[in-house]
Nucleic acid binder design. Structure first.
Lengths: 279, 279
DNA sequence: GAAAGTCAAGAGCAGTGCTCACATTTGTTG
DNA sequence: CAACAAATGTGAGCACTGCTCTTGACTTTC
């Protein structure tokens, strides 16, 4: 195992290291192209090597195997999605919770429609022989749910998250899971709102997956944008976000000190890394 | 092209035809095993041939190519799912709309967890080189949404579907799509409830996909059954189904004659086959 | 019995992931 | 500058895949 330069040396990178990093970047870039063109399961190291102008066995000097390249592409895609979501959310004032929610959902959908193969790699059926290494992908892989939960939590603390009308009950086993998540992420939202948030999360990706994966028959929805906008509005409602012009202070906002601050980590799935570790 | 025995001869099947049909059944059965074990993208005709005790080229007498086998498996899986959903729904009285909805969702989830690779084939990322032939898969592929929509429509006609509280608006382009769907399926539900139904549909599969595809990190939810039950209840609410003990007749039920009957076909996606054609 | 139809076998082509022995380049050091 | 050693590229090779085609054997039908 020659090159596992985790914890990059404190020294400035040698020319060799720089060249090596550039080659790996090239491989990932070419891999992205092949991924976009032919899908994850058809990703071929030999084809990448050809495009790189090198014999097939040479790429094994830079990438351990096909799985490793898939992992790199996975992390790359997670981070690209995370960056775009973060940017879209940050473009709106922090108090416009409904607007930010809509921006988050739209950003995910926009990226998914632009990079369907990447979306399929992240959220589709698992690639046959491949299992993503949790210790490297959990960080980038939780950025969206992190952003969503931070958004809902902020709305709750500001008193802008309505309690669900007469929703589903939360039994003790589920409450235990939710408590663990709440503590791990440093949230304040109570059980039922947190459970609603999880449902909204899965529902958002369900709607996007159906569109990206072509589950709607061809021609069924001529206006997919409107359909998604409708779904987003309904999901905002489901989450408890007041989309109507204010309704100022159904419940008094929560101020710092009363509740734990939003933690920087660890990730949504339990005992893991902080987001952004594997970059 | 020797054997495209569509429209099977009206004659009783010859021994040859019987043997041939049995061999194809064997191939599909072995294909299902390989699918369950290794996933759709790793399905290998040669491996199936080995298990069949025959040389690889021999299976091409029965199955045109790998795509064809995938299509057969796709139809098989769609019908198995459809059968289980239909049975689960029919096990409850026709007036127990909320119960039937819960049974429908639970049946889908149960099947998906039992046959994750099959579920991935139907609802996951598309298999690389493969495009499902709409004329053969649309019928079986629309059975679940058909059952769901029939359920919601029945509830509406019985006056048991509440109008969404203050949900998202439905603009003209989306209304046109919804009108086409409503006419095609012979439904009575108005736009906003129909749009809610579509959201509930995608949300149901979103929740199941996250669970089956392992999007929840390992160990995040120790009680996935409770989580799904909660989601189901919230989705029933979202669809407008009254889960509380009746609330008899917020709106008077609609009786036959006032509105079109539920059509037998065509499928949900527009101009297609009636369900069950490709069996 | 002969003709027609069906089927299995095996060779072969092009592609894949991956390994290994060998050759070449390249940065560093005596 | 020369020498060395590490890093990198090469090509052969193995086992696998989908798929085609020819050949020979078998079965049904005339």
């Amino acid at each position: 195992m020659p090159q596992t330069a985790s914890h990059p040396s404190p020294k400035p990178p040698t020319p060799r290291e720089r060249a090596r990093a550039r080659t790996i970047e090239d491989i990932v870039r070419l891999g992205r192209e092949h991924l976009a063109l032919h899908g994850a399961a058809a990703l071929s190291l030999r084809a990448v090597a050809r495009d790189l102008g090198v014999v097939s066995s040479a790429v094994y000097r830079y990438v351990e195997n096909r799985e490793e390249l898939l992992t790199l592409l996975l992390i790359d895609a997670y981070n690209e999605l995370g960056d775009e979501v973060d940017a879209a959310v940050a473009a709106l004032p922090a108090t416009d919770f409904a607007g930010r929610f809509s921006a988050l959902g739209s950003a995910v959908r926009r990226w998914a429609l632009r990079e369907p193969a990447g979306y399929g790699l992240l959220f589709g059926s698992p690639v046959p022989g491949y299992r993503a290494p949790a210790e490297r992908t959990t960080g980038p892989g939780t950025r969206v749910i992190y952003a969503l939960m931070a958004l809902l939590d902020g709305a709750y603390r500001a008193g802008r998250l309505a309690a669900p009308g007469d929703g589903a009950a939360v039994g003790p086993p589920l409450a235990a899971d939710l408590a663990r998540i709440r503590d791990g992420m440093g949230l304040a939202v109570p059980d039922r709102l947190l459970a609603r948030g999880a449902l909204v999360w899965t529902s958002l990706f369900g709607a996007i997956s159906f569109e990206v994966f072509g589950q709607y028959g061809a021609g069924t929805f001529a206006a997919p944008d409107e359909l998604f906008a409708h779904h987003l509005a309904a999901l905002a409602d489901l989450a408890g976000l007041r989309t109507a012009a204010d309704g100022a202070g159904e419940r008094p906002p929560i101020y710092p000190g009363q509740l734990p601050r939003l933690a920087a980590g660890p990730g949504f799935p339990s005992p893991l890394l902080s987001p952004g570790d594997a970059r």
